[in-house]
């Protein structure tokens, strides 16, 4: 949680997306752009993707995704699991190919495969669900 005692003043500069943050005499520079439900923030060499908060709900930390999606247009090269399979964190579930490279889709945590939504040879679009885990 943010430290409630810190007094930060956030000032927009003349350059779109650029901010000056003051804390007493201390200054630092940051950049941010809101895109849909995510605000991208750059500060000191690191980019943060901050999810919008809904009122009364605390910001969540790392959460285990229940469905895995294609990060970009890709071709499914191999499906290594079937519904009902138990998988361990890091297991390769699906192999995609994009930009001439094989891209393994790995289990984000220990789980069971609930459903598989793709087959080898499928061209999948970004954010399309490939596999459901439970």
């Amino acid at each position: 949680m943010p430290d409630q005692t810190r007094k930060l003043e956030v000032v927009r500069t003349g350059s779109p997306g650029e901010f000056l943050v003051r804390e007493g005499d201390g200054v630092t520079q940051a950049y941010a752009i809101a895109q849909g439900a995510t605000t991208w923030v750059f500060h000191d060499g690191t980019v943060y993707e901050i999810a919008a908060e809904s009122p009364g709900k605390k910001r969540q930390g790392a959460h285990v995704r229940s469905e895995l999606t294609a990060p970009m247009p890709a071709t499914v090269v191999a499906v290594k699991v079937a519904p009902g399979d138990a998988v361990k964190k890091g297991d390769i579930l699906i192999v995609l190919e994009a930009m001439k490279m094989e891209l393994p889709v790995r289990a984000p945590g220990d789980a069971r495969v609930a459903a598989v939504h793709c087959r080898p040879g499928d061209l999948v679009q970004p954010d399309r669900s490939l596999i459901d885990l439970e």
């Binding site: 409630q4 007094k7 930060l8 809101a34 995510t38 605000t39 901050i50 908060e53 809904s54």
Partner: peptide, 28 residues
Amino acid sequence: VPAPSDIVIAVARAAGSRGAAAGTVAGA
């Protein structure tokens, strides 16, 4: 990757996530 600092959260709020909650960020 370091956890988002107060500065990062404050800037994110200022940039205006859709549905950002009313309230206090980092004392402001």
